[in-house]
């Protein structure tokens, strides 16, 4: 039980929260970077190796394309199906192999990336499939290679949706990072469990919830704003975010 009236209570609280927020941001940022670096190409390959895709026949072999597609599908589905808490424990040997240790904030990056990569790859896949096939044909008619089509058409056109996918992915990484206390990674989730739950401090609990909420709101807001900025589809002033906010503030007339 924590004594709210202890002279150091509030300064301790701030210290704990600062450290935990730092740990959460560290885990989330690093996992996110890895997720994007691995998940984006994974999404491209997932779409590309489908029947009729750009990389239908890698090295001229359709069999290889099919095998690649099936394998990646399997891995992605597996990653999505296993509950995070189990994945985290199951990955302990892998983490130890990569980092030499399996506990601590840094070590949490491995399972967090492992859970986020399949999630993000699916979002990339969906975003890429939304790109009008006519654009691919136009690039084809100009004599573009498959890689040029990916780099100049598919990914840039899908970028607004991919950015939205990134912000959804961040939210889910933050979500999962709350469980990382299990492997002594610390973070805000860990504070909520150790202080809020085990030591009955409602104040810690509320503070963690507020910080997480603000974090997620900011990230979602930034994500949506960037996506909107990148998407040049809605360019009339009435649709621009600034204009809409102005309109919203306008008092409603009769």
């Amino acid at each position: 039980m924590i004594d709210v009236n202890a002279p150091t209570f509030w300064s301790d609280l701030v210290d704990v929260l600062l450290v935990a927020t730092g740990q959460t941001l560290y885990m989330v940022t690093l996992s996110l970077l890895i997720t994007i670096v691995v998940g984006l190409p994974l999404g491209v390959v997932l779409v590309g190796t489908e029947p009729g895709g750009l990389f239908e026949r890698p090295f001229g072999s359709r069999a290889l394309g099919i095998a690649l597609n099936r394998t990646l599908e399997f891995i992605v589905n597996l990653g999505r199906a296993v509950p995070f808490i189990i994945l985290m424990i199951a990955l302990i040997p892998v983490t130890r192999l990569i980092l030499g240790t399996f506990i601590g904030t840094g070590a949490a990056v491995v399972p967090l990336s492992a859970v986020a990569i399949p999630f993000f790859a699916r979002m990339v896949e969906i975003a890429l499939k939304e790109v009008d096939h006519g654009l691919v044909e136009a690039a084809d008619s100009l004599g573009a290679s498959s890689w040029q089509i990916v780099a100049k058409v598919l990914v840039p056109e899908a970028l607004p949706s991919i950015v939205l996918g990134v912000s959804t992915t961040i939210t889910s990484i933050i979500n999962y990072s709350a469980m990382a206390g299990v492997i002594a990674a610390g973070g805000l989730g860990d504070v909520a469990i150790r202080y809020g739950y085990q030591r009955y401090s409602g104040i810690h609990m509320v503070a963690v919830i507020i910080i997480l909420f603000v974090l997620v709101m900011i990230l979602q807001g930034v994500g949506s704003a960037v996506a909107r900025k990148l998407s040049h589809r809605s360019s009339t002033p009435a649709e621009s975010p600034v204009f809409r906010r102005l309109l919203a503030r306008e008092p409603r007339g009769g």
């Binding site: 654009l135 044909e137 136009a138 058409v153 056109e157 990148l230 998407s231």
Partner: peptide, 10 residues
């Protein structure tokens, strides 16, 4: 093309 097929991001 009938539907122009221009890149929206460019």
């Amino acid at each position: 093309f009938q539907h122009f097929n221009l890149l929206n991001h460019r």
